[in-house]
Amino acid sequence: MIQAALTFAVTCFALALVFNLWHLARAPGVVDRILALDTMVINAIALLNLYGISQGTPVYFEVSMLIAMVGFVSTVAYCRFILRGNIIE
């Protein structure tokens, strides 16, 4: 039962990543691209955790923690660059 649920969840998040990529390519402005990249980071974390469940190892939690931190910092840095023209003032 868990195997079927895992397959369903992986399919959902993979489809979500495809949607994000589609939006990233066709977005009308730079703000939409940042939003699509941020969502891609979150979906990638979900996929990594699902792979960790299916393999039964805790390694992927550390990986997804690092990706979560890098994704947050990069989104904030990009937004700040648009807002101020500078990242660290």
Partner: peptide
């Protein structure tokens, strides 16, 4: 535990899909 984990995974997958579908479908940033 098996039922709870399966239900949580299915609900999580649906929410993730809905979030990204909304990113494509909605018509204003």
């Amino acid at each position: 535990a098996e039922i709870v984990v399966s239900v949580l995974l299915v609900v999580a997958g649906v929410f993730g899909l809905v979030g990204s579908l909304g990113l494509v479908k909605l018509d204003d940033t």
